[in-house]
């Protein structure tokens, strides 16, 4: 990663995220197809909802004929972390037009958010529309394409996991977390490591006591709150 913020650099730097989208996108297509949805509907979910693994929730609830309101609520809850990510990213685009802001927001993902946060460590805390939009577009197009492949493959492949692609997303978030911790000097290293350790504990406890859909948003809210408390109590 470097300090250049043009579209071409964005395309290049988005490459590592592509594997995650391909892995999950294909899996989503296969599962959507296997759950009885037409290729068109499965692809429309990726085009319109565009919510990564949250779409698995949508598909399984739809297939089980849950009421529409509860499906929409579950999808909202799983994706409510987007509010926090958008709020974190938006200040870097304050000078850009509303149209550009809405464009960035519309295609923002966990991956482009994490990549953008990493990029800040190389650019003296600046982001550009062209860089971010390029990253977002790579993500969106790969996601749709992978879904289409998966829905088509559904007839032939029963287990998309054989290739190990499902681990791409886990490896990627671990990698982005590591790179973030070693390169972000705005928070002290000991504080960051403490927050990471606490978040791991919080996540584990939440997985026991909370419904799956609530784990990420609750842990994020509590974890960030604890971070603020720790910072003010011990790391001033």
């Amino acid at each position: 990663m470097n300090e250049i913020l043009d579209a071409k650099t964005g395309l290049k730097e988005a490459l590592p995220t592509v594997f995650g989208y391909i892995g999950i996108g294909i899996a989503f297509g296969v599962i959507g197809h296997a759950s009885g949805f037409s290729t068109l509907m499965v692809v429309l979910m990726s085009v319109i909802i565009y919510a990564g693994s949250a779409q698995f929730t949508t598909v399984s609830m739809l297939a089980a004929a849950n009421p529409i309101a509860s499906i929409v609520l579950a999808t909202f809850l799983v994706n409510s972390r987007m509010i926090l990510m958008s709020t974190t990213i938006a200040p870097f685009f304050k000078k850009d037009s509303t149209v550009k802001n809405v464009t960035i927001g519309t295609l923002l993902t966990d991956e482009s958010f994490a990549l953008g946060m990493n990029k800040l460590n190389y650019t003296k805390s600046k982001l550009s529309f062209s860089w971010f939009n390029a990253v977002n577009l790579v993500a969106y197009l790969t996601w749709i394409f992978a879904t289409l492949i998966g829905a088509g493959l559904g007839n032939f492949v029963s287990d998309p996991k054989q290739l190990g692609l499902d681990f791409a997303i886990v490896a990627m978030f671990m990698g982005l977390l590591y790179l973030q911790v070693i390169s972000d000097h705005s928070l002290k290293l000991t504080l960051q490591l403490t927050v990471v350790a606490l978040t791991i504990v919080l996540t584990f406890i939440s997985m026991i006591i909370l419904p799956k859909n609530l784990v990420i948003i609750v842990v994020t809210l509590v974890g960030c709150g604890l971070g603020v408390v720790l910072k003010n109590a011990f790391f001033k």
Binding site: L177, I200, G223
Partner: peptide
């Protein structure tokens, strides 16, 4: 704190 907390959760969960 959102970046490290959310990346930790997305990885660990």
């Amino acid at each position: 704190f959102v970046p490290i907390v959310i990346m930790t959760t997305l990885w660990f969960s």
